[in-house]
Write a protein that binds this DNA or RNA. Structure first.
Lengths: 188, 188
DNA sequence: TAGGCTTGCCTAGAGGTCCTAGGCAAATTA
DNA sequence: TAATTTGCCTAGGACCTCTAGGCAAGCCTA
């Protein structure tokens, strides 16, 4: 029999595609094994366990998201940068729902430090260079922005905004306008 | 043998306590059966399946959260109401992590309409009576507030703010200050 | 209080996921 | 080509979900 040629990376990549198709919570070792036409037990020489697989997926997604956002940010500043960041973030979540859910996994400090999770906050900070903010206001603003972006796409996907006809796009644009205006006149 | 006296309500209540202890994703039919000292199969005359159990838990948590927030809001207005709302929301999430996770379940439109999910948006709207906002700005503001609150507690619990020493409480207070100031000068 | 009825919890069992131990054969190295 | 490493296998245990069918506890009615 020819071998399937599994590696941790190929498994993680396939897990990411699977996550977007069937949802993060349905990314299972067995499903992944089925996808490669091998037995479940075969995967355990490449990944430690199901949790390890999900962590790898989370790290992959965080790196992808950071790349997308970095691209969007290139050469922009001020409100332009804020909007580009936010839209890139939200677009990634929409295009890759399973991967995005993975980015919300609680990672242990070690993994988080190694992964692109930190890069994320760093880039949010880059946005703020267009505004007149210094520590500790900067950290507060980073947290506020991140919270709002994540909260919005998270609620949007949970269907929390369906109850009202007002367009979800319009509210998003207004939220960004609001945040821009808030950053420009950050209260003392 | 004496009967255990199970009902859907008692199961849901116990599931809520279990969720806060071991996490929402570990709320399982078997664990619940163990808690009552009965066999798993016995639960299926009270709940349809595991998903049904989790939906009931979500509905319970949404109702509790709505109650807490309503209490906090009583007799307050303006920034006072905003802060009370936000703190009640966040405190519930901290005190009942499993239940709070349950509130984020995607409910089908029917269930969502019946449950307290709608009451939530309605109360957020009550806050805004202290500010000078009218449709569609009001809906946009409701969505922004809800997003920020949810995003903040969600990231906080995922450990996203651990990387920086700046106090999580301080950033939260600043976020509320910021939102208040934003609502008072909502850009046109 | 004795019968019948409803209903609650039971046993039995099938199917799925997670994971370990140990084996054989393919690929790599000497 | 022989030795070693490595990859995927079979076998099997533990746990979770859910269905079908059974027995008896507790309720009605007479």
């Amino acid at each position: 029999m020819a071998r399937a040629g599994l590696t941790a990376d190929r498994l993680t990549q396939a897990a990411a595609e699977l996550a977007d198709e069937v949802g993060f919570e349905n990314v299972t070792v067995s499903a992944l094994a089925r996808h490669f036409g091998v037995k479940d037990a075969s995967l355990y020489s490449h990944i430690r366990n199901a949790h390890d697989l999900r962590v790898r997926l989370a790290v992959l997604a965080l790196a992808e998201l950071a790349d997308r956002v970095a691209d969007a940010l290139a050469g922009r500043s001020g409100k332009d940068a804020l909007v580009a960041f936010a839209n890139a973030y939200r677009r990634y979540a929409h295009e890759h729902p399973g991967r995005y859910t993975a980015t919300q996994m609680a990672l242990d400090p070690d993994t988080a430090a190694t992964s692109a999770a930190g890069k994320h906050a760093e880039m949010t900070r880059a946005i703020l260079r267009g505004y007149d903010l210094w520590e500790p206001d900067q950290t507060d603003a980073v947290r506020l922005l991140h919270s709002t972006f994540h909260g919005y796409v998270s609620l949007e996907r949970a269907g929390a905004f369906h109850s009202h006809p007002r367009g979800v796009e319009a509210s998003w644009t207004r939220a960004l306008d609001g945040l821009d205006s808030l950053l420009r006149s950050w209260p003392a």
